[in-house]
Amino acid sequence: MALWFIRGLARRRVTTRFPAVIDPWVRTLPSPPTFNSSLLTLTVADKLVECCPSRALSHDERWLVFDVGACTSCGTCQRVVPEATGVSGVFELAARTSAQLLRRFPLQVGDR
């Protein structure tokens, strides 16, 4: 029992905390998108806002606002605008306030 426990600690398999080693395949599961802000123009932002089924995206004249909490990781935006979006591969996104879940990306306002 003691040997098993020490071996487990050495391989970081026994823990009373958040696991340090996460299975590598976890990163391949659907996760919220990332955005390439150098390619975000007003037309791209319009497309993104229109395609999002859970209304996680909105934009004004200068910023694209991404509500991580509302995102269902469906991947629609990655299919519609593949060049400006990517996969974040991050899941542990819990936050204390809803404001921490809002992400802003600057829009390239010069060219339409």
Binding site: S73, F91, E92, R96
Partner: peptide
Amino acid sequence: DVYIPGCPPSPLA
């Protein structure tokens, strides 16, 4: 107090 995003959130989340 705490918001956990995800649809559904994974057990680790």
